[in-house]
Design a binder for these strands. Structure first.
Lengths: 148, 148
DNA sequence: GCTTGACCTCCAGCTTGGTCGAGGTTGAAG
DNA sequence: CTTCAACCTCGACCAAGCTGGAGGTCAAGC
């Protein structure tokens, strides 16, 4: 069992954030007789997962909901992971896709002669994300007349 | 020239957010004699760009810094885009990579028989650090978009 | 058994990315 | 010329995701 300080050091996640995550239900701990937190080593795995997910733009709530599908008290089974995976895969795929388009649009624009943006991919971004992600309000299909 | 209401409708970005973005220097407008905002059509392109970038976890500041490289008052040239592209590509690549790892970790776990997590990729996220002894290196210091 | 640093709770405050409403102005249609 | 939706500014407020401090407790070393 690890103390909060040990977890903080090993994971690089500040102890303040660890308490915050616990408060939000992303991680759990048990308490000593003296009311101090003690963590299973598996919390490090969760934390790595949380931080990675956050870095790519998922909210703590997204992560919490996903992790809620995993058992706290036992090693996740194959079907535990399957469920988590299924529920996340399409979201992750969508994000990967969005990133690709964002990147390729940039580099693509160089090739496509953006001096006249008329036929440029960037032009057409607006219609793609019609309904995505809770955090990001949507861009409606814009009526791109002719002049840009 | 478009009014703020027209831009809001076409882009799907609320007018409140439009003023907010202008305040933060992400978009610009000109004013009528009566002090009302008028936008170039190109603002729609910027907005689509902003929303996409946000969706994949970049901050408004990241976006602002990137867009600051593009001219406000003329169509971006090839070299404008080249500069923007260069400065973003590695960041986007890193995020794509992170997403892949996150996704593949999930699906990988299904294949690898996570009933025993021993050899699982997820397992090794933290063990790498743990096994580096007492002064263990940290997880990625987390979130924020500083490296853009 | 005393010290000291790591721990506890609670709460205020910060940043980001906005929304909402009050109170006033503009501008195009009738 | 009136009307009224759409616009303006400004400041309060919101939620997420934290940080930091105050004031108190625990536990390991001397």
């Amino acid at each position: 069992m690890l103390t909060i300080g040990q977890v903080a050091e090993r994971s690089g996640v500040p102890h303040t954030a660890l308490r915050f995550y616990e408060d939000r239900g992303l991680i759990t701990s048990v308490r000593t007789a003296g009311n101090q937190r003690r963590y299973l080593r598996s919390v490090l795995r969760r934390l790595a997962f949380i931080r990675t997910a956050q870095r790519v733009g998922l909210t703590l709530e997204d992560v919490r909901d996903a992790l809620a599908q995993l058992p706290d008290n036992r090693t996740p089974t194959k079907s535990d992971w399957e469920r988590l995976s299924r529920s996340w895969k399409s979201e992750l795929d969508a994000r990967i896709d969005a990133l690709y388009r964002l990147r390729d649009r940039l580099t693509g624009c160089i090739g496509c002669g953006c001096l006249s943006l008329r036929s440029c991919a960037l032009q057409n971004i607006d219609d793609e994300q019609a309904s995505h992600g809770p955090g990001a309000p949507k861009l409606k299909p814009a009526v791109e007349g002719g002049t840009a």
